[in-house]
């Protein structure tokens, strides 16, 4: 008897459609979010993450509506991220049916927001999303830095130290994305996943770079992730969730089958 590692398909949603970019650019259409979420729910996904990658207010209203629709039909945990900047944003998403919210840029500019959010809504629903890139030169000790604005702006913040700080501020979970790997299909950055998982007490979701099922397994066995997130390998039908689970279970990983 043990806690299962989770597989989380991620829906990057832009203007009401699921899209998937490579290194945060070059977008490709993958369908209607509600249909996609229902398909993953039926396949046995352990959770669903919905990332609203558009910024305009109009699109945000569409997001709330879609979250409502997904939450009425999908009875597994749903995390919504993208543009969460205030407690009012969080309340709106929770009321729409989200179970957790992902806070990213707003945490970097105002770390106290994470504290406020955790004390008001509980740590269990506060996921801090960390987008990082490796900044150390080859041969140097590994060092990763936080980037904002879709990976365009460096912040000078050390990713491991930031993760520790965020859990102290009340984050209940960390969604860790390697921007070097995102969309590349070369696998997770296992070093940063391992470093952050071992440095913090909360669950870590590895994200960015999954190209095959071995990458998912490696995220858990080598990266010490508690959950693995992927988008394109599932969206475009290369693999199904049950295939991924069976593959990981065959390597001795505890899964919900």
């Amino acid at each position: 008897m043990a806690l299962a590692k989770r597989i989380i398909p991620c829906l990057d949603v832009d203007k009401g459609r699921v899209v998937k970019g490579v290194n945060f650019v070059d977008i490709r259409d993958a369908g209607n979010p509600v249909e996609v979420a229902k398909r993953y729910n039926e396949q046995g996904a352990d959770e669903i993450t919905f990332l609203d990658i558009t910024a305009s207010n109009e699109d945000r209203a569409t997001t709330v509506h879609m979250v409502e629709e997904i939450a009425s039909e999908v009875f597994i945990p749903l995390t919504v991220g993208g543009g969460i900047r205030t407690c009012e944003d969080i309340r709106r998403m929770l009321n729409a049916g989200a179970d957790k919210v992902g806070i990213n840029t707003a945490a970097v500019f105002n770390p106290d927001f994470v504290k406020e959010a955790a004390s008001r809504f509980g740590s269990q629903c506060i996921v801090v999303a960390i987008d990082c890139k490796k900044v150390s030169a080859p041969g140097e000790t590994n060092r990763w830095e936080i980037f904002t604005h879709g990976g365009r702006k460096a912040t000078g913040i050390n990713a491991v130290e930031w993760a520790i700080k965020m859990t102290e501020y009340g984050a209940g979970e960390i969604l860790l994305t390697s921007m070097d790997r995102d969309g590349t299909k070369n696998g997770f950055d296992l070093d940063v996943t391992h470093a952050i998982s071992n440095a913090t007490a909360v669950p870590i979701i590895a994200s960015g770079g999954v190209g095959n099922l071995q990458h998912l397994a490696d995220g858990v066995t080598l990266g010490h992730a508690d959950a693995v997130l992927a988008a394109s390998i599932f969206h475009f039908g290369e693999y199904t969730i049950p295939e991924a689970k069976a593959f990981m279970a065959a390597q001795g990983i505890e899964m919900r089958l």
Binding site: A4, K5, R6, S123, Q124, G172, V202, P203
Partner: peptide, 28 residues
């Protein structure tokens, strides 16, 4: 082990209650 205990875990049904009807023992 991480805290919070977050995710899917097995529940052993230690007694036969109507609430467990149709649910396999040790379901997650």
């Amino acid at each position: 082990l991480k805290v919070p205990h977050m995710g899917w875990n097995q529940v052993k049904q230690t007694s036969n209650h109507p609430i467990w009807q149709g649910i396999e023992d040790n379901s997650r």
